[in-house]
């Protein structure tokens, strides 16, 4: 099965700081729900920013949706096809009302206001949140904000979802609702999460980012330990 996202030997370092990614290999196929774990500052969010071209690797290649992506223009299509949900929903909800925020992406893709509003209604129905349509974004609860950020990227019709800590500031009921929604979505997704219960409920595969490389955290034999895993090309 061809990969939707494929990273080969990706390296990255922020200016004047030690390298955060040291040869990451990653592939995501259709229908997969890949969960990423790793300690704070391991470079998980950086990896998402590299996939959508907000950061460029210092070395290595990004292939997305069948093409090599190198310069800013290459990533315009990637940003439409890979919906990135940021760790802090307040960063992503930048329009005054829910409807305007969800309509922002479709309108950037050339939809008319009427078409964009029809999409807003569709995605809010999809996540069963039509009551939020005219609410003011900064007055939503943590769980509501998270669902609206998801709706905002679903409105762009992505083939892949990149979810950065989607259970942050979400209570148990909200997390259960999120699990239901994510398991019903047809899109392949990469999910960064520190919550092992959440990962267990949605993941088809898991990887751990450690020392700038991705590892399979699954023990290789019955008595194996997971704290010193072997680096793998995935």
């Amino acid at each position: 099965m061809p990969s939707l996202i494929n990273l080969k030997d990706v390296h990255f370092a922020y200016p004047s700081r030690p390298s955060v990614l040291n040869g990451v290999d990653l592939s995501l196929s259709a229908g997969e729900r890949l969960c990423l774990t790793g300690s704070n500052g391991a470079g998980k969010s950086t990896l998402f920013q590299i996939i959508v071209g907000l950061l460029h690797p210092t070395q290595g290649d990004v292939f997305a949706f069948g093409q090599s992506r190198k310069v800013e223009k290459d990533f315009h299509e990637v940003r439409r096809l890979a919906g990135l949900v940021f760790q802090d929903p307040d960063d992503q909800l930048f329009c005054p009302t829910v409807a305007e925020d969800i309509a922002f992406g479709p309108m950037n893709l050339g939809k008319s206001k009427e078409e964009a509003m029809a999409i807003v209604d569709t995605v809010l129905q999809q996540i069963n949140m039509t009551k939020l349509k005219d609410r003011i974004t900064h007055k939503l609860s943590g769980g509501e904000k998270r669902l609206v950020t998801l709706a905002a990227v679903l409105a762009m019709g992505p083939e892949v979802l990149l979810l950065d800590e989607p259970t942050n500031a979400v209570d148990e009921a909200g997390t259960e609702r999120l699990v239901e929604i994510l398991n019903e979505l047809p899109q392949a997704m990469i999910v960064i999460s520190h919550d092992p219960h959440f990962r267990q409920k949605i993941a088809t595969r898991s990887l751990r980012l450690q020392d700038g490389k991705l590892f399979d955290p699954t023990p290789k034999c019955d008595h194996a330990q997971t704290d010193m895993p072997e680096a793998i090309a995935v």
Partner: peptide
């Protein structure tokens, strides 16, 4: 970054 991630590319 969030704005660019949602295809604001004019």
């Amino acid at each position: 970054e969030a704005i660019y991630a949602r295809s604001f590319e004019t």
